[in-house]
């Protein structure tokens, strides 16, 4: 059954676009984020420089430590002991999610970056501008995934997401290649997630990623949002086709917790009815 984004005619006349330059900016941030976790094991292995360590499960830059909120939460839930360095490591990511929403997913996560790149590759190979979303679930499954994940974690005493998280696996596989010149089978999880994009764009990110769900939950009252101006909107529907998550920014989805502020809709909107901006609550 064809989804909403299927009959899209290609976006033409690129010159006319009046975006905010978000596409290039996001490409740079994503490349930098992936470059960081490629550089870290190389520096550690060949030069013994441990200034940067880890990847997006825990990353340290000098004495600044980050811990992924979901991984940290699971560790705390299973250990049933508060470990303050862990909480402090989670502080900045949680703050980021609180004010900016799921920006980690949209701007940093290597899974989304590889998905973006593979989308472009598919576009080149298949000559298709926009993908069809063949399998569309109710998006509330997202919360269900988070709850199931946390309950299973506590029942089994073993965090499920931690050892098979796609963003974590990308980091782990890069490190494994650099350090041990080999790959591990669990890397296929990443391949499966990328292949699922062919069925529905960002299938995993949309419905099944518990980390994304936790960040969305934290960002429920976020300040960075996609604002919509209904007066200038021409109802062309380009924003809906551009959204990798299958959201409809013209229906106010740009302010929903599901939106990850990637700005694709903003860039696709020709009358500039959409704007990524800061919500200045009075």
């Amino acid at each position: 059954m064809p989804g909403p984004g299927c009959s899209g005619d290609p976006v033409s006349d690129r010159g006319e676009r009046r975006g905010q330059g978000l596409r290039l900016l996001r490409l740079l941030v994503q490349s930098g984020a992936l470059g960081l976790i490629v550089a870290a094991p190389l520096l550690n292995f060949y030069l013994h420089i441990d200034f940067i360590q880890g990847w997006y499960q825990s990353l340290s830059i000098g004495k600044l430590w980050f811990v992924s909120p979901l991984e940290g939460l699971e560790s705390l839930l299973v250990a049933k002991v508060i470990y303050f360095p862990l909480l402090i490591g989670m502080f900045i990511p949680v703050l980021l999610a609180y004010f900016l929403g799921r920006v980690f997913c949209g701007w940093i996560c290597p899974v989304n970056f590889l998905s973006d790149l593979s989308d472009r590759l598919v576009n080149v190979v298949a000559g298709k501008k926009k993908h069809c979303d063949l399998l569309v679930f109710p998006r509330q499954i997202f919360w269900f995934a988070l709850i199931v994940e946390l309950i299973f974690t506590m029942v089994l005493g073993t965090p499920l997401f931690v050892f098979l998280s796609p963003p974590g696996l990308i980091g782990r596989e890069i490190m494994r290649v650099v350090f041990f010149h080999t790959l591990a089978w669990e890397g296929l999880v990443v391949a499966a997630v990328l292949l699922a994009n062919l069925v529905t764009r960002r299938m995993f990110c949309r419905y099944f990623c518990p980390l994304g769900a936790l960040l969305a939950f934290l960002g429920g009252r976020r300040r960075l949002k996609v604002f919509f101006d209904p007066d200038s909107c021409t109802r062309c529907g380009q924003c809906r086709r551009a959204c990798p998550l299958g959201l409809d920014p013209a229906a106010g989805d740009g302010r929903s917790p599901y939106c990850w502020n990637c700005g694709e809709c903003v860039e696709s909107c020709k009358p500039a009815s959409l704007r990524l901006g800061w919500d200045k609550r009075q």
Binding site: G54, S58, E71, G72, S75, G168, R172, F179
Partner: peptide, 27 residues
Amino acid sequence: IFAGKCIRCGRCVEVCPYKSIVPLDIG
């Protein structure tokens, strides 16, 4: 509780100067 507490960030592996520490795989 090791498997529960460890978040598999691999920093111990990366920082080990002797490559003594090896990350396990899905086996």
